[in-house]
Computed example of a mutant assay.
Amino acid sequence: MDLQDPRPRVLVTRRIFAPVLERLSASLSLDVHDSDQALSPEALRERLAGCDGAFVATTERIDAALLDACPRLRAVCSMAVGYNNIDLPACTARGVLVSNAPDVLTETTADFGFALLLATARRVTESEHFLRAGQWRTWSVDLFAGQDVHGATLGILGMGRIGQAVARRGVLGFGMKLVYHNRSRLPAQTEAALGARWVDKDTLLAEADHLVIVVPYTPETHHLVGAAELARMKPGATLVNIARGGVVDDAALAQALRDGPLAAAGLDVFEGEPSVHPGLLAASNVVLTPHIASASLRTRLAMAHLAADNLLAFFSGGTPPTALNREVLARPR
């Protein structure tokens, strides 16, 4: 980054695609942290102090203390849909524009969520490890017998864009019965098209053969599914989490996988990731993936381009397409 460059200065906090950097560098002065390792909080604060904008991923914590140390900052644009790492009220109070990347990853994430459901229910990972270890000697009638998906009851906790996309795959592709819980019900027409039935959370837990969790992470949803909720699930049920780490109590989940009632779980997100609870690592009846639900090349590139769209629009005086706090746009930039 050229300190004499009069253009707005933007810190890119992770290695991203070259075409996106080329777009940004045409009108912005970039400081690129060209690494997959996150900056430490201290390094982030130091490098962001002289910047007007930030291009962030999912782990960089943008809070009030950081904002106070970086008074020049005017825009924080994330290539993720979730923004629990960004203190939105603090940004708004200081006139800092925040944007995320919704919509572009909906179908890709739903594909992966359903793949995780299938792998979990049919014990794909567990049986592959068995085979690779040379333990397959003969056939038996119950060798890795799992749970049926077709015709089973699909429970969805969080019926936003991604939840509805998962629901369509289950109902239209696998003839599943659908129950869901959300803060607000879907329109009657949407419910009718999916054969969806809204139920309270306890009923959802009790009826679902396969529970998929797709709620955003907030202080209110921290440990939304803990020991008490897991105990209400039916014996032999499976759980898939493609939401955020912290929505599920991982310690309680490890115990439910060990002692029941759950048959298996599929997890793409974890509390304190990239660290994973040792009880989950030790469990054979859990499918673990490293937060890759949106990881198709086309989708990840679209996510990065959308973050770039927001930055470029903001610094050119336009309207960022997915701003979360549009009220700051009325203030001088």
Rank of each mutant, 00 (worst) to 15 (best):
E46Q: 14
W139C: 10
A133N: 06
T190D: 05
E229L: 06
V286T: 07
T120K: 11
G173V: 02
T13M: 07
V166R: 08
L178A: 06
H305P: 00
A54N: 12
L24Q: 09
H223W: 10
P235D: 14
G175Q: 06
T109I: 03
E107P: 04
T125R: 09
A167E: 04
P321S: 01
N182K: 00
A264P: 00
A57S: 04
G170C: 08
Y180Q: 03
L118M: 15
L204E: 07
Q147K: 13
M159E: 04
I213H: 00
G246R: 00
F17H: 05
A152V: 11
A18Y: 08
R23N: 03
L204Q: 11
A330L: 06
A101G: 08
E327T: 01
L280G: 13
V225N: 11
A265P: 10
Q164M: 13
A121D: 13
R183M: 07
P102G: 08
L297K: 12
P216R: 10
V247D: 01
Q147A: 15
S27V: 07
S25E: 14
A54E: 08
R72S: 05
A38I: 13
R333A: 08
A145V: 14
L39M: 14
W198S: 12
T109G: 14
A323N: 03
P332C: 03
C91D: 06
G260M: 04
R183E: 08
H150W: 02
R183W: 03
F114H: 09
A152E: 09
T92C: 02
L11N: 10
G236L: 11
R7C: 07
S40F: 06
H210F: 02
Q4L: 07
A237H: 02
D34L: 12
